[in-house]
Amino acid sequence: MRSTFEYNIIVEDLIARYGDKTVLDGVNMKVRPSEVRVILGGSGCGKSTLLKHIIGLATPAGGKVELLGVDLASADEPDKDAVLGRVGMLFQGGALLNALTIHENVALPLREKTGLPGDVIDEMVAMKLALVGLSHAHDLTPPELSGGMKKRAALARAMAMDPAVLFADEPSAGLDPITAAALDELLISLKTQFGMSLVVVTHELASVETIADRVTMLDKGHVIAEGTLEEVKATPHPMVRAFFGREGEGEEEQRSVLQAFGSDGGRA
């Protein structure tokens, strides 16, 4: 299902708070269809919080989020349902339902949300599991899988409904380089073959190089850089430099990175 919007995701001046703590402070972001947007940033900078707000798991304290043209915070149930039916989310730990087999997990959204006959659903599940290389694991339960397999099964579930937007929270964290590379390739083909927008939170620079069309970099709840990977790398912000720092920068700049980190790094 290709989307017809100019932007699949529009985030405007988003403010997010947990109690008194402001986690996101005026974040702006727009993601087009068929775009892989990578969100970068140090631990605790608000990446996962941003994801949760876009997908409607948390209500913004200020600003606006539009997902496929709908503001989830104010939409009524049927609209919300319609949007969520076109969105997939790959959680960091997989978040597969432990009580169900892998097959049932992937089939769940199809069974609950569509009127498809059982054999069609089974065939679709088999296709999706083949896509992530888990054809042999249909009848296993999540606890019987390794971390990497869980992640791939969760990806199969996230794409069960052929979403227009796929979110992934650290998809390749904890995977071996070969599996991680295969996963990256899969993500790219989802973009090119299905026209999905992908929003990926990751720390793996190698993976960013491969998949990112555009990069948004967060620090302390603010967007400090946005653009193609090259543009972001060229941003003079010290945190950006620190992040990509090891790539043969001049000695002068290296020192400024350390200074910036020394006076500011303690309060991330």
Binding site: G56, L57, L84, M89, G93, A95, L96, N98, L108, P109
Partner: peptide, 13 residues
């Protein structure tokens, strides 16, 4: 705590 509830919500369940 394993985000399964969040996963259900994002599937519209």
């Amino acid at each position: 705590i394993s985000e399964e509830i969040d996963a259900l919500k994002t599937m519209g369940l």
